[in-house]
Amino acid sequence: MARVLRPKDRDVTAERLLDSSMRNAYDPDVDIDWDAPLVEGKGFMPEERVSLYGTPLWDRLTPSQRLELAKHEIGSITSVGLWTEIVLMQLLARYAADLDPRSPHTHYALTEIGDETRHAIMFGKGIARLGLPAYGPPRVVRLPAKLFGAVIGGPAMFASVLVVEETTDRLQRSMLDDESIQPMIRMINRIHVVEEARHVRYAREELVRGLTSLRGPALELHRLVTALVAYAVINVLVHPGVYAAVGLDPREARAVALTNPHHRESRRWMAEKIVAFLTEVGMIGGPSKRIWQKAYLL
């Protein structure tokens, strides 16, 4: 039985988040030195989180190729993150349109849209500064997402947002104090982590509030949608094109990555906190739980 959480009054929470937004906000145009050169020899993400780490293919790569692969993988993850930020803005705008415009709860939803706009621009500038392609998700994911953005709301919307935000958040947090990572990437991560902490609290409380009366087939539908989003997003974070950038066959390398126990463990590690929360509140369970298992998130 999932523990019943009792979120505080939504406007009380929103007032606190609005106050925090005023006191702890960043401007990426000012707070990141986009003209600073990359530091030679510094990494782009922890080696043990690169999808091929620990495989024979990884062993064949030179140190410079490993750095290059890590750069392309963080660029791919960032590209998907940028795309999800834009989808989230659409969801929040539709959500806020039906709220009381006088409410602090509404004001925070609109504030979050502003945050996400800056984040998307920041990610785009970061990808450009690294000289990387805009990988992003394939059309097979982009097209259903348009339908998702148009019709899905309530608990499935907030749970899906949390899956995306909290999985990437854990990877970013692991780099904040890592001196071996490029300073620009660490600063991008710092800005995103600080501001996303507010977004996560807002979404978690609204999810719990929406679950109070959800039962039976309706609950299973929201569970299913969330599981499908989790499966789709985790599977497109690393674009096959990143392998071609270091001279590997994309199909072979992707097949190796998907069976790599280190990569599977990284997936579980990234999703560990949000999976625990969603299980606790009852959003992971029933037949759709197998989808989480197939994505190696459980």
Rank of each mutant, 00 (worst) to 15 (best):
M1Q: 10
L5C: 13
K8A: 11
D9H: 14
T13V: 05
A25L: 09
Y26P: 05
I32R: 03
I32Q: 04
W34Y: 14
L38S: 10
G43W: 02
E47S: 07
L52F: 01
R60P: 07
R66T: 00
E68A: 09
E73M: 11
I74K: 09
S79R: 13
L82K: 11
L82P: 08
L88P: 07
L88E: 10
L88I: 11
L91S: 02
Y95R: 13
D100L: 05
S103C: 01
E112L: 13
E116V: 05
I121H: 10
M122R: 07
M122W: 01
M122C: 06
I127Q: 01
R129W: 11
A134K: 11
G136A: 01
P138C: 00
V140N: 12
V141A: 10
R142L: 15
L143F: 10
A145G: 05
V151G: 11
I152A: 06
G154D: 10
A156F: 00
M157T: 06
V163F: 07
L171N: 06
R173K: 10
R173C: 02
S174Y: 13
M175C: 00
R186N: 03
I188S: 05
H192P: 01
V194E: 04
V200R: 04
R201H: 11
E205F: 03
L207V: 03
V208R: 05
R209H: 09
L214I: 03
R215K: 09
G216F: 09
V225I: 07
T226H: 01
A244R: 08
A244S: 10
P250A: 12
A253F: 00
V256G: 01
L258F: 15
L258A: 11
N260A: 00
E265G: 09
S266D: 13
W269S: 11
T279H: 04
T279D: 08
Y296N: 10
